[in-house]
């Protein structure tokens, strides 16, 4: 009996319709319903709070009361897998995509993806961003062959909606009046110094950075991007990449990576 008790205790924590777990009693013959409910409440409230901390923009967009009810549904479907609560909610965006009551807010899941990426970037390993001098030190004839090491905090979130503008307005508690929700936006999340930054990328830049992050050479990435986006502005993408800290190092030869700090 004892070997099964934590399994039934845990199941009853997440499902208030289940009876009290075997062996759980009140002291001196007392009942244990309200006593066990303290644990149920602790688990639910603390995890709902954790989701509210991780997804404050989503919470503001749907309202706190609605968010808390929705978070309860989510956590009953996907309780955290580890004790690292700052990693919780990896499936929350996908949950929002299929959660019918928010289907009229199609951008909501991408706002959640940006928020999840923001927290991943916050906790990512420390690394100095690539310095312009390191790129400048590469001879012009070798530039095409250069590959880049992504900064541990760098993330890209692409959206069919104006998710970056909506995320920023919500986090900064600004009104959404000026936002056109159906304009597609790509977001770049980085941590160049000690603060996480979220930027909206110009056309093509997400393709270019993703190609470089996947290990393509500078030339390959530029070609792939220009094929899809003839208007792509390569020089300004390079400036943005250095300023935002998308990469931590570059190398002019696959065989001899030159890690620069």
């Amino acid at each position: 009996m004892i070997e099964m008790s934590q399994r039934s205790f845990g199941a009853a924590l997440l499902d208030p319709d289940l009876p009290l777990p075997d062996g759980v009693i009140g002291p001196r013959g007392k009942g244990a319903q309200k006593r066990f409910a303290v644990y149920r409440n602790n688990v639910t409230v603390s995890l709902v709070n954790a989701l509210g901390d991780i997804f404050p923009a989503v919470q503001r967009l749907v309202g706190e009361g609605f968010f808390r009810d929705m978070a309860r549904v989510y956590l009953s479907e996907e309780p955290p897998r580890s004790a690292l609560l700052f990693e919780y909610g990896g499936g929350f965006a996908a949950f929002l995509d299929r959660f019918e009551p928010v289907s009229k807010l199609p951008y909501l899941s991408d706002v959640a993806r940006l928020e999840r990426a923001w927290l991943d970037a916050f906790h990512a390993a420390d690394a100095d961003p690539l310095r312009p001098e390191s790129l400048g030190a590469i001879p012009p004839e070798s530039l095409g062959e250069v590959t880049f090491t992504p900064h541990p905090a760098a993330r890209i979130v692409r959206s069919k909606y104006a998710a970056v503008s909506i995320f920023s307005a919500s986090r900064e508690e600004r009104p959404l009046d000026h936002v056109r929700p159906l304009d597609p936006e790509d977001g770049l999340i980085t941590r160049p110094r000690h603060e996480v930054q979220v930027r909206q990328l110009p056309s093509g830049a997400a393709d270019f950075f993703e190609a470089l992050m996947a290990g393509m050479t500078f030339e390959e990435a530029a070609n792939v991007t220009l094929e899809r986006h003839p208007e792509f502005d390569l020089p300004s993408a390079i400036s943005a990449m250095l300023e935002a800290g998308v990469f931590s190092a570059c190398s002019s030869s696959q065989a001899n990576p030159e890690h620069t700090a």
Partner: peptide
């Protein structure tokens, strides 16, 4: 913690 997940509360033992 249990197979089912992490409960984020300090749960009692007999």
């Amino acid at each position: 913690s249990h197979d089912a997940g992490y409960f984020n509360d300090l749960l009692p033992v007999p």
